[in-house]
Design a binder for these strands. Structure first.
Length: 219
DNA sequence: GGAATCCACGGTGG
DNA sequence: TCCACCGTGGATTC
């Protein structure tokens, strides 16, 4: 396994999050503790904060246990196929399945509220059971209007998986390795001008959970 | 030669 | 009504 090794070094109660991402952070060995922003083409950017969430191992275990994971099926051409991951969506006013996720969302809002111009409200959880699970290239789009920038914050728990990004319409792709407790935020025009995916990784045999925080109206 | 990437397929839901 | 969306597997490229 080797998945649940990194435990929390900081407690939320000792370090309430107030306008900084550091509140929920655990300083992993050798980690900078800084949010690193990577500018992409066309006004998109990605923030990466390794080892962000304290107590990731316990949160991961609780989510595996308590979230009512749902399998979905969809028509793809001539057959019905399983969606290659398990899902659970928490709408704006639904209580999140773990207090650490509520705290994480608060910390994200403290840090990004001004830049985002609104708040992260919904949470979409995905369980990638092993490397055969994946998600194809897509952008998280708006129900309303397509000329409006937004952000999607992704908290990754469990087995590290690559998140791939490439310009919409084609172009060289880049990869971010998302490890246990890592945070990645896509912002600027990223959801309009870039696609992202979690590629299949057949050698991986253990699970990863991703938590995606979004403002209202972003799918 | 193995791995990563590309491509085409069409029913569904917004 | 219309169009963007998305998983698979075979082909192609790296």
């Amino acid at each position: 396994m080797g998945v649940l090794v990194q435990e929390s070094l900081l407690d939320l109660d000792e370090q309430p999050a107030l306008g900084t991402l550091d509140g929920v952070a655990a300083e992993g060995p050798g980690q900078s503790g800084e949010v690193r922003r990577t500018p992409l083409a066309r006004g998109a950017w990605v923030d990466v904060r390794p080892g962000w969430l304290a107590g990731s191992g316990e949160v991961f275990a609780r989510l595996m246990e308590t979230v009512p994971w749902r399998a979905e099926r969809r028509h793809m051409y001539d057959k019905v196929v399983d969606v290659p991951r398990l899902l659970c969506f928490y709408a704006e006013d639904a209580p999140l399945p773990d207090p650490m996720l509520t705290a994480a969302r608060q910390a994200l809002n403290s840090h990004y509220r001004d830049e985002l111009g609104e708040e992260f409200r919904t949470a979409g959880l995905c369980l990638y059971r092993d490397g055969r699970d994946s998600v194809a290239w897509h952008g998280d789009r708006f129900g309303r209007g397509r000329d409006h920038d937004t952000m999607v914050a992704i908290l990754s728990l469990g087995t590290p998986r690559a998140l791939a990004l490439r310009p919409r319409g084609g172009g060289p792709s880049m990869r971010f390795e998302l490890g246990h407790g890592d945070l990645l935020v896509m912002g600027g025009s990223c959801q309009r001008t870039w696609d992202h995916a979690i590629p299949k990784a057949p050698k991986i045999t253990s699970p990863r959970i991703s938590v995606q925080f979004r403002p209202l109206g972003v799918r």
